[in-house]
């Protein structure tokens, strides 16, 4: 995944504020948090001299095939449904401490990100994932607990 700094390098760097942010750096941060999209920077989108950069940045944020909108990919052919990621995911634990948080079947699937269906992990409610949104952190709960590297973020 790209860093805010790398993204910034690709922006117009004029701090024109048309995007509603105070600076291109702030815009880069908003992009990273997926609050805004590359299209929200009018100069980059419309000015031919930024065309190439615009395409690069857009490419970085287009959803990869098979990926959820937050970039989480499950390699289904690798996953064997051990449930480690399900039980280790802090969001799952917070939302269902006595079900999946305790190693058991979900008591309420409402806000869980990861569940096991037919022996394979299924990602849902991905907007709840700690790696995304305003207060994102570099959570690795589901990555380090997987014995076969079946979960990846792109």
């Amino acid at each position: 995944m790209t860093s805010t700094m790398e993204l910034y390098q690709l922006l117009p760097k004029t701090n024109c504020k048309e995007c509603g942010k105070n600076s291109c750096m702030a815009f880069a941060a908003a992009l990273m948090a997926r609050e805004l999209t590359p299209d929200d920077c009018p100069p980059m989108k419309n000015d031919p001299k930024y065309k190439e950069n615009y395409e690069t940045v857009s490419g970085m944020f287009s959803t990869t095939e098979g990926a959820t909108e937050t970039g989480l990919i499950v390699h289904e052919e690798l996953c064997f449904g051990c449930g480690n990621c399900v039980v280790a995911c802090p969001v799952n634990v917070a939302n269902d401490p006595y079900g999946v948080g305790s190693g058991k079947a979900p008591k309420s699937t409402g806000k869980l990100i990861l569940i096991i269906e037919d022996g394979i992990v299924k990602a849902q409610n991905v907007d709840e994932c700690r790696r995304f949104g305003k207060n994102k952190i570099l959570c690795t709960g589901c990555i380090v607990t997987c014995p076969v590297e079946a979960i990846e973020f792109v």
């Binding site: 449930g83 190693g103 014995p147």
Partner: peptide, 18 residues
């Protein structure tokens, strides 16, 4: 057990809260 008893670590021995 990750191979022989896939849920060993997630259901009992490592990851769950108790």
């Amino acid at each position: 057990p990750s191979d022989s008893h896939p849920r060993h670590l997630s259901k009992f021995s490592y990851f769950p809260r108790g």
